[in-house]
Design a protein around this nucleic acid. Sequence first.
DNA 1: CAGTGAGCGAGCTTCCGCTTGACTT
Length: 782
Amino acid sequence: MQKNLVIVESPAKAKTIEKFLGKDFKVLSSYGHIRDLKKKSFSIDIDKDFAPTYEIPADKKDVVKNLQQEAGKADMIWLASDEDREGEAIAWHLYEVLNLNPEHTKRIVFHEITKNAILKAIDNPREIDMNLVNAQQARRVLDRIVGFELSPVLWKKVRPALSAGRVQSVAVRLIVEREREVNAFESEASYRVIAIFLVSDKDGKPVEMKAELNRRIKTKEEAQQFLESCKNAAYTIDNIAVKPTKKSPAAPFTTSTLQQEAARKLGFTVAQTMMLAQKLYEAGLITYMRTDSVNLSEYAIADCKKTITGMMGEKYVQVRHFTTKTKGAQEAHEAIRPTYIENETVSAGAQEKRLYDLIWKRTIASQMADAELEKTTATIAISNNGDYFTAVGEVITFDGFLRIYKESYDEDSEQEDESRLLPPLSKGQQLETKGITATERFTQRPPRYTEASLVRKLEELGIGRPSTYAPTISTIQQREYVVKGEKTGEERPYNVLTLRDGKVSHNVQTEIVGAEKSKLLPTDTGIVVNDFLTEYFPHILNYNFTANIEKEFDEIADGDIQWNTIMQKFYTQFHPAVEATLALKSERKVGERILGQHPKTGETVSVKIGRFGPMVQIGDADAEEKPRFARLNKELSMETITLEQALELFKLPRTLGDFEDNVVTIGAGRFGPYVRHEDKYYSMPKGVDPMEITLDEAIALILEKREAEKQKFIKEFAEDPEMFIMNGRYGPYISYQKKNYKIPQNVVPQDLNLETCFNIIKLQQEKAESAPKKRKAPAKKK
DNA sequence: CAGTGAGCGAGCTTCCGCTTGACTT
């Protein structure tokens, strides 16, 4: 018989806490929310004050059953979910679902997982805060209303199975609008002038020193004139200014900053980072990885201090308390940090280690002294005009936190590395130039979003939570609103004018601009859906919508207003807009664009989003002749496609000729262009033009695929034609009667005989039957 | 994995936030 049952959200946390509390306490986990609005139905009764209908999701049934049993055995139940809106709601749902007795139930909260903090929490229990719970219900109900009313509008007006929501639709909007900015951007040229002076270093050896002109020059002619004017000029050091500066370390990691730095420094995707962090957390190596707090526990700060002192000495320590500036942060946890600061490295997988290293350094650096620098600026006067050059040098006089960690930045800055010392100079010193160059430079267009920079932007706007950043990015890609892609750069020529040995020369160089990798690009569907939503639902798509509604949720939490009142206010404004938009005549015509008339038949040629994505249509639905369709290929976009390009698409499928007495045709399908022969399909490799491919090339593709097919079979058995040992994506496996079975790790696939194969199959079938039923993947439509 | 789609039309799709599994062909 357990005296006490403590329920927390995460099982890893439960394990740790159990150790602190001793044998009178059992600690279990709720695995997050245990109850939610019904999955399939709207589940909100608008007429009854927005009463929600909750259910226990299938995958939580076992958890709840177990909690019920254990709660029945305990004298006292301690609801210890997180101290934020969602955590309070979890506590309340537990209270309701487990049918707890108020006299045997207590609500406790703690911000750090230390023995002291937990014992203190136990000593200071409170009641469930219904105002906070209602703020969560309001948040939940609002999101359901927005998502389940807007999505069907899209199914009707644009294309089935699309989705819209408070968070994802704004994320798409950011990407669409950035793309428009990029396309509308016109770069401006100007000339950057750099002089190389010859001076002596401290040992008297000649060295070169770079200095930049105080202004940029607009045109080539002016640059030419300027260089000409420098021919006979003398250069004198006019002033030397030495200024000490400081740099301070960044705050410890939150989910968002960890995702950004791991992307920049380690090249991880947002999802990868979270998966690795989860593993580190489960292994007890770091604190919780879904947090918006930059706070470190006193205990962690003390450990940092000790570790830094031990490694580098006391002068490297500077205790700092960071505060969160993020909109809407709820700070239920600490910042992300190593559980044991003294562990500089941990034993884990290679990728986990790299992430741990990053977290360790960032945490340690956050408690270290400022770096001290000395910046020297030398001003160099030009004798025959009013302009001047400046040479800048920067030296680190005390490295401080930079010894451990330097934050990275996204913007590929044009600034050159300034961390160098200037040679000794004196005021009034005359300088010789080796040459002066004026290089044409262009203003840079805004950068497209990466996964990580999108997360940063969303966080800045207060949209989404640490637990949803990664899923949101995956959703907008799954819906095909956004793709992660590359943009190949373009060559751009630029002028370089050089003054050297009393002569001005001119040459043209080229650079690649606009090349980008792994950036988020909007698709046609994304653009059409975004434009539609922004036009008809500007309120929801407004970047400040979440921040504004959060203020109202706060009022609910403070008990200043009823949650259903807020819902009523929102709904009376929102719902009519939904009705009005549904009543618009045009069905599935959103984003349609007429390209022109077919040159032979005079039929209308148009582009729009069809059931399966962007397509070209020739003819009209109500005409006698049925319309014809063709899907847009990857290189084309609805916004820019021309009539000629559209008609080109209808030249497929085309017949190339015969091979082995069967016809070979070329077509374009869902996955790109293909060769078809004898009811088999062969994908065409990238870069091959389906309009240009010859019969011989197509036959080569067929033969190549046949060869690859053969390689797939490692072993066949004469005794049983249904048994194969195959080579697959995840290594060798057994295939029997069209079903696949794993080969145990210690077995060499080549050595398997029929009997051992059957044994392996039998074993796995038994295992599958005893295991809980596998959830079926959603049925795919044929 | 594959060439679809304008209407006899069933029934389906969808949100955001909390949490981890089970297991890949």
